[in-house]
């Protein structure tokens, strides 16, 4: 996917997320503050390597990897479901491991390889897991799907997709409100042989 180039100035001036959270924070700051309390949002320059491309951002330290991807890099494929580590919709790969981007600070991802759903396809060709989800009708509304696919790719790469039971166990961190579960298992079974390792 094409992502617009974002300048530092543009980010500082125009990011609605940063503006809102800064306001909320100053309103909540208690009077009897601990000595080290920063009274204003703390900013940090973060270089994120997403889908092979390095991007420099100027972020509030509170920015999660999920918000950095969606709001700052405009990679909206990664979804925000619960924002509390419970649903798996925000799953991305960090140095090849699946993690929840809603419970990862952007600063924690600095200098590491982030891969999102936008980075799976190669040269206009879908990743075998993406194709398998389509072939097996492994979604209805599609909201959980990017997280399911990122999790599924890692599940196969980890070697945790040997049986249906194992797939269900190792995919249990990805909830699907439409209950496409049986088709997701079928999709993973299809893709795992094409991915060359089960």
């Amino acid at each position: 996917m094409e992502t617009p180039k974002i300048s530092r100035r543009g980010l500082l001036g125009a990011s609605p997320v940063v503006a809102v959270s800064a306001k909320a924070a100053s309103a909540q700051t208690p009077e009897a503050a601990a000595p080290a309390l920063p009274d204003a949002p703390v900013r940090r320059r973060v270089v994120l390597k997403v889908n092979g491309e390095s991007r420099e951002l100027d972020l509030d330290t509170r920015t999660t990897l999920l918000d950095a991807l969606r709001e700052h890099l405009h990679l909206a494929g990664t979804k925000k479901g619960c924002d509390q580590g419970q649903c798996g919709a925000c799953t991305v790969h960090l140095d090849g491991e699946r993690v929840l981007s809603c419970l990862t600070l952007a600063a924690q991802a600095e200098g590491r390889e982030v891969v999102t759903i936008e980075g799976l396809a190669r040269g206009g060709k879908l990743h075998p897991m993406q194709q398998a989800f389509i072939d097996n009708d492994a979604f209805q509304c599609g909201y959980c799907t990017p997280g399911q696919i990122m999790s599924a790719v890692a599940c196969v790469q980890e070697g945790h997709a040997r049986t249906d039971h194992e797939i269900r166990e190792y995919m249990s961190g990805n909830l699907c409100r439409c209950a496409a579960y049986p088709n997701i298992v079928a999709a993973i079974n299809q893709a795992k042989s094409q991915m060359g390792r089960a």
Binding site: T64, Q84, L100
Partner: peptide, 27 residues
């Protein structure tokens, strides 16, 4: 007020909920 940041799966969750309020994270 200073908390170590390991995986962050407890800490960031509770910071978002405003249950934990550290002012410095040591990753």
């Amino acid at each position: 007020p200073v908390q170590y940041l390991g995986g962050g799966t407890t800490l960031l969750d509770l910071m978002k909920l405003d249950v934990m309020q550290p002012t410095r994270l040591v990753d």
